[in-house]
Amino acid sequence: MSLDGAGVAPPRTATFVVWRLLGLMLTLLVTSFLVFASLYVVPGSPIDFLIQGRSPSPATIAAIKKQYGLDQPFLVQYVHWLAGVLHGNFGRSLEYRENVSTLIASRLPTTFSLVLLSAVIILVVGLGAGILGALRAGRSSDKAVLVVVTFFAAIPSFAAAIVLISFFSVRLGLFPTFGAGQGPVDRLYHLTLPAIALSLTFIALVARITRSSMLDVLSREHVEVALSRGLARRTVVRRHVLRNAGGPILTISGLLVAGLLVSSAVVETAFGLDGIGSLLVASVDKLDFPVVQALVLLVVAAFVIINFVVDLAYPLIDPRVKAGDAAR
């Protein structure tokens, strides 16, 4: 080996990002195709499926046919639909008689606030518990963390919702039982219980992964070396453990966001919140397929894109990794 060092990787990074970007496009294309084509998976004709449970006027039926281009060849329909989607046009809701995009846009803020609040809770409590458990491994505080985490992991958000409502709203009257409130503070107040209900399973996940990742790093030699140089334990944890342990947490963050988005459907329904989750459930119930299609597509796309971004973020925390190399 030459004395000149092992050498840095040449700028493969750029090519790798482009390659991954193409993969992302392909995945998005295929998933959008699947979501679109699902209309054709049902028995019977698409138009019958779309108007089931209603008795629309001939004009409405014609409008629906036009929206989906049902009298055109399949692939043309798909391209037509996809073009519309890329322009933000998801067609019209069968139930609400308005543009799907407007409908979704109006309900997005509630879900966004809910997910954001939950994410904060998850990160603060989950990371905190995981770090605490790892630093006091084997002692009673660690055991307590493990027990609590095992329970949280098994509590579905709707069960948590019921218990929280029953105890804090009905019995103690501390929180409202439904609705998203008006204005930032009121909204925070209204979203507290829902956010807690939503967070529990994910707190368990984050805590478990953080703890095990930290325990792994704590056992590594560079930590021992740092201690051997006389650094305080707290300093060593701060400088040599935390950042090194971050990888697995970054890996699941994509899963986390997807899980939050999907579980919001349950929590929003339980608490009567007007977000896109409850919209999805209501649309399935009311056979409003254009809305269902749009929402499924949006959530899947968000999931795929977030995972892509997470992959790119790896080199920021681990200099050994070139973008796209990250272990899944």
Binding site: S228, A232, N244, P319
Partner: peptide
Amino acid sequence: RTLRSSTVSMVFQDPRAGINPMR
């Protein structure tokens, strides 16, 4: 800690494992 930081130092066997790869 004073002992470790001024009086005694150790050279470890595997430098790749002993130096934090992220710094």
